[in-house]
Simulated scan of single mutants.
Amino acid sequence: MIKIRYQHFFKTIASTFKVIYPLVLIDAYLRLIQNTVFNPNGFFIKIFNLSWKYQSLGRLFTPLTTILELLILLFFGYLLTTRFSLHKSPDLSFNTVIILAVACVNISPDLRTIWNQPPLLLVILISWLVAHIFGKIPWPTIRVSLALFSGCLLNLLQQSDVLIKLPGISTSARNLNWWTLGPLVMIRNLATWLGLINPFSETKQTITSPSATANLSAALSHQSLNHLPYPINLHSIYTSYAFLGGIGCTLGLILALLIVKKERLVLQNIFLTMFGFNAPLLLRLPVLFNPYFLIPFIVSPLISMLIGALFIQLGWASPAVYQIFSGTPSFLINFLGTNGNWGSLIATIIAIICSTVIYLPFVKAEVDYENKTLD
């Protein structure tokens, strides 16, 4: 009975993901254009030596994508409530929108309105609760009043310390502790899989940690990547190898989908995934909340990081040190961050191949399950 209910619950979420997928795809392409074209340090601007004259237009992209993503989440909650409630009361879905909208608005001290995105899991929980609890309240006026009150209460909780934040990965440590980093990477990927962290934004590559900064200073002083003080650090291992294709190392997932002949899905997402924007892929397949993909989504980045660390430790590859262009494709981060070290590129390719091998059996199992369901 529990398994049947979970399957129905997951199918409802997965089918709703498909409805919002085109909007998420548009949002991802807008973010890609913002990072690579409408940015003075953008990848395409620098690679093709283009003159950058669109500073005012580039500033519009951040509020545009923020508003679009918030509207997508509100629309997602609206659709979910409608499906969970089986269309019993048409106004129930608007109660979900009211709760989410009120919960996400934040007025800054200078009276500016700031919109915070609700996590996907929160949207799902609110949609389910509204469908099953608010549906038992016979008067629409009371439902709206309760929605406003619930939204205000949730807003206060989000602005206080009552809701515990997920543990982050510190960038202040100089020495890399594998016993700490491994579990934190697993927790962060699990949190994304559970919808606690929205996958809309790409992962920004930074070299601001003390160890990465020390490596950069040493490389510039000696004009060499040999004998760096901290070859194994968070930038050279975590940000350089754990996000090949975005969180979950989904470049391997794209190649696995290509092998099983999911050409249409691959064609829509391969360009985005190369640049680290994998939110459309995570929602459309779907990967999020899908038990078939939990293991590879967590394991693949760990294996990729180990491959990078092994190559650096054995001296077969140099650690990424130099600052790269905004929106650089994830598979070129190590190559360009080492000023063209071929060992780093080989390590990256091997990591992507391993990710493909890890994802492939799970992709085949998902495809077989879809085929059986259709039959």
Rank of each mutant, 00 (worst) to 15 (best):
L80S: 06
I47W: 14
Q34S: 08
I47F: 12
E69W: 11
T81Q: 07
G77E: 04
L64C: 00
G58N: 06
I20M: 13
L64S: 12
L92G: 03
L80Y: 12
L25G: 06
Q55M: 14
I45T: 02
Q34I: 00
P63V: 11
Y54H: 15
L74N: 05
R59K: 14
V37D: 07
I72S: 06
N49Y: 01
G77W: 01
R59C: 00
L68H: 09
I20L: 08
L71S: 08
W52H: 13
L92V: 07
Y21V: 09
W52R: 05
G42S: 05
D27W: 14
T36G: 04
F61Y: 09
L80K: 15
P40Q: 13
V24S: 12
F76M: 11
L25I: 06
H87F: 07
L68G: 03
L57C: 02
S51M: 04
P63W: 14
N49T: 11
N35H: 09
L64N: 07
Y54E: 12
P22E: 04
I72G: 02
K53T: 14
V24L: 14
T65V: 14
I45V: 14
I26T: 12
R59E: 14
F75N: 10
P90Y: 06
Y29I: 02
K88C: 03
G58K: 10
K46G: 01
L25P: 04
P22L: 13
H87W: 02
I72P: 03
H87A: 11
I72N: 08
F61I: 05
F48S: 00
K88M: 07
A28N: 05
L71P: 05
H87T: 09
S56P: 01
L70H: 14
I45W: 06
A28M: 02
F61P: 01
R59Q: 09
T62I: 15
I67W: 10
L60I: 08
Y29A: 00
D27C: 15
S89F: 02
T81G: 03
Y29P: 00
L73S: 04
Y21G: 09
F43P: 01
Y78D: 03
V37M: 08
L79E: 13
Y29H: 07
T66G: 09
P40A: 07
F75S: 11
V24K: 10
P90W: 13
I33C: 05
L68A: 04
R59A: 10
L50P: 05
K88V: 10
N49Q: 12
L60S: 00
T62R: 13
T66F: 02
S56C: 01
L86K: 13
V19G: 04
L64G: 02
K88Q: 12
F75A: 08
L32Q: 02
G42R: 15
V37L: 13
L79H: 06
L25N: 03
P22T: 15
Y54V: 09
D91G: 03
L57V: 04
S56N: 08
